[in-house]
Design a protein around this nucleic acid. Sequence first.
DNA 1: CGTTAGTTTGATGGTCCTCAAGCACTGTGG
DNA 2: CCACAGTGCTTGAGGACCATCAAACTAACG
Lengths: 244, 244
Amino acid sequence: MTSNEHSPLTRKLSAFVALSEVELAVLERLHQRRRSFVAGRDMVHQGQSEQAAFILSAGWVCSYKLQADGSRQIVDFQVPGDFLGLRSVLLRTSDHSFEPIVDVEPAEVLTSDLIEAFTQTPRLATAILWAASRDEAMVVEHLVGIGRREADARMAHFLLELGSKLALVGLGSKAGFDCPLTQYHLADTLGLSAVHVNRVLRQLREHGLVTFRDGRVTFHDYGGLVALAGFDPTYLDQTGPLLT
Amino acid sequence: MTSNEHSPLTRKLSAFVALSEVELAVLERLHQRRRSFVAGRDMVHQGQSEQAAFILSAGWVCSYKLQADGSRQIVDFQVPGDFLGLRSVLLRTSDHSFEPIVDVEPAEVLTSDLIEAFTQTPRLATAILWAASRDEAMVVEHLVGIGRREADARMAHFLLELGSKLALVGLGSKAGFDCPLTQYHLADTLGLSAVHVNRVLRQLREHGLVTFRDGRVTFHDYGGLVALAGFDPTYLDQTGPLLT
DNA sequence: CGTTAGTTTGATGGTCCTCAAGCACTGTGG
DNA sequence: CCACAGTGCTTGAGGACCATCAAACTAACG
């Protein structure tokens, strides 16, 4: 991370704001402290307080809420380039749990480091909070979709949304993307049973739209999926820096 | 509003932070500019930008998102004491629409006024943003509940949640509260058809739990409702000021 | 007194859950 | 090398929940 090869977060923020040398340097310094977590073991528990934030450079994490009846709702996925637990830091307590999908080694960002960085470079703070707001809006959009769309449209929308997020950091395209999720993850994300997830995937595959198989999502008919999902591809397309 | 009788917002914020004389004065000054809106006519449209924020001292407003298929999802209700469109101001554009449930006369808060007030009294800013974060968390909680609970539990949870919000500003208790919503509003809120809303209400009434009738919600068995909904009453009970 | 908005009830059917069982693949230990 | 367990995927059958269609009823209002 010391070379001129930028981290996924840097790449993502550059889509919003043209960052200066100084800002890039501050951003890189936030990546210094590393920690390790193994797949399937919660990094943060719902209700925990005094939590640090993390920056994910590789691997996948999901954030979820446990329900009274024991089921869980996956609320969001963090992919390379995402901040994790930013809200926990700002609100001093976490209302989500975080579970690594695969083994990860995120950078740990202490509250004090974050505040220092924000004071030094307000434009960087703006960029980060901007990205956070965008993510928050996507969460609401996603949750609204769950209550309203039918299972196949939900699935199609989710896969397209995820593909867009990954494309922002260069990990996917309209052809497809690598995806370590199980069908159980999809079930908890979409509010469906695992059994029904499987049926829906089969249906989408047989209709020649998309294949989910062996850790890979392959789009066969991108336009068809967009139509089925009622997906609005513009709300992620930030075509250039908004601040120069 | 010039007397020693405080506005609902003041009352609500006082539950979080003990406000000084100066802060109270600044808060009252934000209430000066009044505007009128009639029931059922959108105040703000999804996608609109450069919007002011509003403070609601009386009446009800709902915020909602339109779906691709034409249905709508009501995301939140603003009741007396709530800020409205705070996020639109911060993000410069609105991703919700706002519709008054009854005729309302909210105070309009211009972006410049808000920023000025925040600079003058940072503690007031903290209190307002704190309240906003709490509301945001409730929105996510609510949307998650929609995908997971069954209709009767959804309804029970919603009515309890609403009752708690109203109790915070002195407009409700464990006995019940006045409620100008129609069953169509409930349907769009809970992601149910209006017909099914009616059936669920009948069922809850016949089980002696709660009555929704003639603009009034009456709790007959508060404990029973809490049990049915899996409602956690603590996450709203701010038993005293957190900052003194 | 017709109109409109809101509420109520019945009948029918689709989506999706639950229960149940079988298959494929991987890693582990005898 | 093979039995075994564990994890994840796949398919079938039956039924619950809730949407949709249809229609009647009430209250408010011009």
